[in-house]
Simulated assay, not measured.
Amino acid sequence: MPYVNIKITREGATPEQKARLIKGVSDLLYDVLGKDPALTFVVIDEVALEDWGVGGLPVEEHRRRRAGG
């Protein structure tokens, strides 16, 4: 029983996009490892931007620096 946890920032992933992620991950586990999609669990956690950090910075500040602002 594979369990996959996907964490994304809470920036408006649509239900359709989430469904594609769930199907894509399930299909990949089947293709690569032969795992039954009916026994594969995929959980998507959406995290607020203020709770996500990259390179020692809050993600919003990290993005501003990368964009040159």
Rank of each mutant, 00 (worst) to 15 (best):
Q17W: 09
W52G: 04
G24V: 02
T14C: 04
G69A: 14
N5L: 12
T9L: 06
P58H: 01
I44V: 13
M1D: 11
G34Q: 11
A13N: 12
G12H: 04
G68V: 13
E46H: 05
E50W: 08
A19W: 08
V47L: 04
L33R: 03
V59E: 03
R65P: 02
I8G: 02
I6R: 00
W52P: 01
E50N: 08
T9A: 06
D36W: 06
L28T: 15
R20H: 13
Y30H: 15
M1S: 14
Y3I: 15
V47P: 05
P2R: 08
E61T: 15
A13L: 14
K35W: 02
D27C: 01
A13F: 06
L57V: 05
H62R: 15
K35T: 04
F41P: 01
S26Q: 01
Y3W: 07
P15Q: 14
V59A: 09
K35S: 00
K23A: 14
G12Q: 01
G56W: 01
T9Q: 11
L28V: 06
K18G: 11
E16Q: 11
V25A: 01
E16P: 03
R20I: 14
D31C: 01
I6Q: 07
E50L: 02
V42P: 09
D31H: 06
G69W: 09
E46N: 06
G24D: 04
V43R: 10
L49D: 08
E16N: 03
D51I: 01
K35D: 01
T14I: 07
R20T: 12
G56D: 03
V43Q: 12
E61S: 10
W52Y: 09
R64W: 00
V47K: 07
V42I: 05
R10M: 12
I8S: 06
K18M: 13
R10T: 11
F41L: 15
E11M: 00
L49F: 05
V59Q: 06
L21Q: 10
G34F: 00
K35Q: 03
D31N: 14
I22W: 13
L28F: 08
K18H: 08
N5R: 12
N5P: 00
E50C: 03
V25D: 00
L33G: 06
V54E: 10
V54D: 10
G12D: 04
L21P: 11
P2L: 07
T14W: 05
K18F: 13
V43P: 00
R64Q: 14
A38P: 04
L33K: 07
V43A: 13
F41G: 07
L57D: 13
N5I: 12
L49C: 09
D31R: 14
E16K: 09
A48D: 12
R66L: 15
T14F: 09
A38F: 05
A38Y: 04
R63Y: 04
V42S: 00
S26T: 13
V59S: 08
R63F: 08
G24C: 05
A48T: 11
S26E: 05
L28K: 02
L21H: 07
A48V: 13
A19C: 08
G55N: 08
A38C: 02
G34A: 01
T9H: 04
M1A: 12
E46V: 05
V42N: 02
Y30V: 14
T14A: 05
P58F: 03
T40H: 00
E60Y: 07
D45G: 10
L39H: 12
N5Q: 09
D27Q: 11
W52C: 05
T40S: 04
